[in-house]
């Protein structure tokens, strides 16, 4: 087995294990009615956060559009777009995630007619050139071995004039410089011991203890994003997503206060396996200045 395949196996193992930790319980108990209710909650949560799923994605114009989602997680975003009439194809490198997404489509019956999940690799997409009106990917392509190859594949499968709507992690952010590099990398010394320290420090959550390491997490400066998308036209990007609770150690205390002060939102269940702790207005503002997410929109 070549090195590339070994990395892909590690990636699959981690994201399968995270799937089990976050979503297995939620998915097991879903019914058509509870799914449709959860999708309304999800859309409402995205609006509160000004997430790209409702800002960069033209929800009102999705009807009949052919949309590819790369890395659908457990299928929450894909199911939301299907509900708005998109003809979804959802590709994940992890079988269980593709299956969970497909299960949501089938629960939706006619609402997701023609929608289908596929297992595949973002670096060698199994689709013909010029196929999709929109390719959507939320925080996925920075976890693959060759992110630039994956972005080129996104462009290849887009129709001319089609739009990429993509979130990648932002290096020009509080989370990278303070929470990650200063606290975890330098003060805990992990950056000096391990080239994969950022991957190990990010992503895990849910009810299980982490036993498998996350092989790859990357983050990008503005110029890094513009370089990745240099073959696209009309590239726009904005920052979002700032949470005090992500500060190592003390963040946990803040999270308890935050939940008491602002409450939780049920929209988190489908995408995080639990309700989303509501952001403070200050966090929303800080997200625009030093958030951990680049919300990118680009045209082929």
């Amino acid at each position: 087995m070549d090195r590339n395949e070994t990395v892909k196996d590690d990636i699959r193992a981690f994201w399968k294990s995270l799937y089990d930790s976050l979503y297995e319980d939620v998915d097991a108990s879903l019914t058509r009615e509870s799914l449709l209710k959860s999708l309304d909650d999800l859309e409402d949560m995205f609006r509160l956060r000004r997430h790209m799923a409702v800002v960069e994605m033209p929800l009102a114009g999705l009807k009949g559009r052919r949309v590819l989602e790369i890395g659908p997680g457990a299928g929450g975003h894909s199911a939301l777009f299907a509900k708005h009439g998109a003809l979804m194809t959802s590709l994940d490198i992890t079988f269980d995630r593709a299956r969970a997404t497909n299960a949501k489509f089938r629960l939706m019956e006619g609402l997701a007619a023609g929608c289908q999940a596929v297992q595949g690799d973002s670096e060698t997409l199994p689709f013909a050139d010029d196929t999709f009106d929109i390719v959507y990917s939320n925080g996925v392509l920075h976890h693959t071995a060759d992110t630039a190859a994956a972005v080129d594949e996104v462009r290849r499968v887009l129709k001319p004039g089609g739009r990429a709507v993509i979130m990648l992690y932002c290096k020009d952010s509080w989370h990278y410089w303070i929470n990650m590099l200063l606290c975890v990398g330098v003060l805990q010394g992990r950056a000096f011991r391990d080239g994969h320290w950022l991957g190990k420090a990010t992503e895990w959550g849910g009810r299980n203890r982490q036993t498998v390491r996350n092989p790859i997490t990357r983050c990008y400066s503005r110029s890094g994003i513009l370089d990745l998308f240099r073959r696209f036209q009309g590239v726009t990007l904005r920052k979002g997503e700032f949470y005090w609770y992500l500060v190592p150690k003390i963040g946990r205390l803040y999270r308890r206060y935050q939940i008491r002060r602002y409450g939780t939102h049920p929209g988190g269940v489908l995408v995080y396996g639990e309700p989303w702790p509501m952001q403070s207005p200050l966090e929303t503002r800080l997200g625009e200045i030093m958030g951990w997410a680049w919300f990118i929109s680009a045209t082929k």
């Binding site: 003809l87 194809t89 089938r106 023609g114 690799d121 199994p126 013909a128």
Partner: peptide, 20 residues
């Protein structure tokens, strides 16, 4: 699902990732 087969619309857009 197993007997439902593959949606012809999906088959239209799927390609072999090696030859594409």
């Amino acid at each position: 699902e197993r007997s439902a087969g593959i949606d012809p619309k999906l088959l239209e857009i799927l390609v072999c990732p090696r030859v594409r």
